[in-house]
Design a protein around this nucleic acid. Structure first.
Lengths: 345, 345
DNA sequence: TTGAAAGCGCTAACAT
DNA sequence: ATGTTAGCGCTTTCAA
């Protein structure tokens, strides 16, 4: 390497001003005579000087960093959200410090500690432990300890915690799905995937049942299938099992997310049936996968930019001491494509 | 908020030791009597104390941060690599500072500056400007300015720069693809997608042609199709165009990546043909998409963990002043699935 | 408008 | 083995 690191002192000396003045032109929050400003700015350019963010943070007790904890960036839902959040944060002068906990509680804990050591100004946590039906008391205590110092925005549910919540309106999402399918004449509708101890899934299930009731359709326990994961693999297995069981096939399947839908579609095709002619498929999340499948998936999506903006905006408002709403809902929107069709029984 | 921030001074005072001793037990790189160590550790636990990473970095001139610049995390190839790199970095006591530049040169520049301000210990840059055929002189100069201070590891090509390179062996990758297809009796093989000014794509093309030559198969310019992007959309459009043109259809198509393959498959299905019966498809990257398509894609993949380890290990060796190889190659591996079949012309 | 000086929380020489 | 001290590179009072 080599090349001595230049600091505001070097700049100050060469410009014949005090370090404080250099700092002032850097931060821009104090008046500096145009004469000196120009001189300093020239030096900054000359040396391609970049202020040390660590020193700056240490001194200002603001890192302009937002921690972003997600389950797995390889899931397009999180990837889409992450990119949107990064943009939203950048636009507001913040950076995202992203990390994946890969459904590993220990790793989540480690990542959390790392964020705290980095003194992130706020924390955005998505899914996982913050979205379980029965909130773990010990965990809530830990999070509350954090919210004492750092604002925490979650997507999910954490009873008794002092977090800001930004959630997708799961009820509306499922209602939209069911209305669409029922309007298309489907009565035998399966809901496949997800764990009932996950809040978002739980809400979807409850809404699924109330939609059936509302339309006077009988509920059959067979039609809700739980899966340990939200993966392609699980979707495939579950659908295969339904075929193998010999039970009456659904005329429409609602997949808990796009991954699950991919697996379900694979299974259906392998059993020689056609989508949507024999079975309609509808999924949640509307990631790029929905558009890329053949046929393209009808999917309940969200305005990801809006979702991200709300998340980031809430975090920043909290940082700045303004009082954002404790609970906000993101409306879903149904995108009708080719994978659903009228029931032609 | 509230709750006064505890520092090593608080701990030191309460433990009746000097701040230096607390620092010593924190870093673990100096001897401390078990008696004092236990006392300090107890206090650390009591207050759930986390050392301020900013202060630590400022003082030690090491951030334990590796900047990770990628085009777009929504592409599963990068997502897979990013997760693997994050894990690799964590295992070695480093954190990844990830950012996407979304094919926006200005954004890449901004992100780069952010990384420099954060004083990352090293930089890993993937794709984009560092993988163009003709290296931009001005850009090389800028990167070289960085390599004066920070080791830079790239995946791609940047002539005249002082970067460490870790690349996929594109030549072997394409050879594997061609050998497979030709062994299956294909002669009319199309190579779809990518820009020839991208180094990895360029190498693939050259190898494609030499493979044909080696096997005495005539080359037809129609069989290589360029696309501005590496997207599903582009794949669909290109394949539609091939159908519409009325030209002789290829019996096998090599897609430049999994996205492209998805689009191509969509188009083929819509034209009423079957994969692999009518046309074989082979792609590069072997992301989860390859396994999730129906039929599952034959794809040339890589050992992502190995790739990531090499990337991170190289960065860390450079940080530590050891001299990693300037140029390393990651071998590809062909995964044969259902989308390719023997030519039954 | 500007400079001097203190301090952010840690690490690392240097002494002891 | 341990304490003292001097920074690391900024920001921010406080005076002038």
């Amino acid at each position: 390497m080599g090349k001595e690191r230049v600091s505001i002192y070097h700049i100050a000396k060469e410009a014949g001003v005090s370090p404080a003045t250099v700092s002032r032109v850097l931060t821009g929050n104090a008046n500096v005579s145009t004469e000196k400003r120009i001189k300093v700015e020239a030096l900054i350019k000359k040396y391609d000087f970049r202020p040390n963010a660590m020193a700056r943070s240490l001194s200002s007790t603001q890192t302009k960093l937002i921690g972003f904890l997600i389950p797995d960036i390889r899931n397009p839902f999180y990837a889409t959200l992450a990119v949107a959040c990064e943009r939203a944060a950048n636009e507001r002068g913040y950076s995202l410090m992203l990390s994946n906990y890969l459904n590993d509680m220990e790793l989540q804990e480690q990542n959390l500690q790392k964020m705290i050591e980095m003194r992130v100004d706020a924390l955005i946590m998505i899914g996982g432990k913050v979205d379980e039906m029965v909130s773990d008391e010990e965990y809530v205590e830990k999070i509350n300890q954090i919210t004492d110092t750092i604002p925490v925005v979650i997507t999910g549910k954490l009873d008794g915690s002092d977090c800001y919540q930004v959630n997708i309106d799961q009820k509306k999402a499922m209602e939209a799905a069911m209305e669409h399918l029922i309007a298309y004449g489907h009565q035998k509708i399966a809901l496949i995937g997800g764990r009932k101890d996950v809040n978002s899934t739980y809400t979807k299930r409850v809404t699924y049942r109330s939609s059936l009731r509302k339309h006077g359709i009988a509920f059959s326990a067979d039609d809700i299938v739980e899966t340990p994961e939200y993966s392609v693999e699980c979707g495939l297995q579950v659908m295969d099992r339904i075929f193998d069981s010999g039970q009456e096939l659904p005329t429409a399947v609602i997949a808990i997310n796009d991954f699950m839908a991919m697996g379900i579609m694979q299974s259906i095709r392998r059993h020689g049936l056609f989508i949507p002619d024999d079975i309609s498929i509808l999924s949640f999340d509307d990631t790029f996968i929905a558009e890329s499948e053949t046929p393209c998936l009808t999917s309940v999506g969200y305005d990801y930019d809006r979702f991200a903006n709300t998340l980031v905006e809430t975090a920043i408002m909290a940082i700045e001491g303004k009082n954002p709403s404790k609970m906000q809902l993101i409306p879903p929107k149904l995108v009708i494509r080719e994978s659903t069709a009228k029931y032609n029984g």
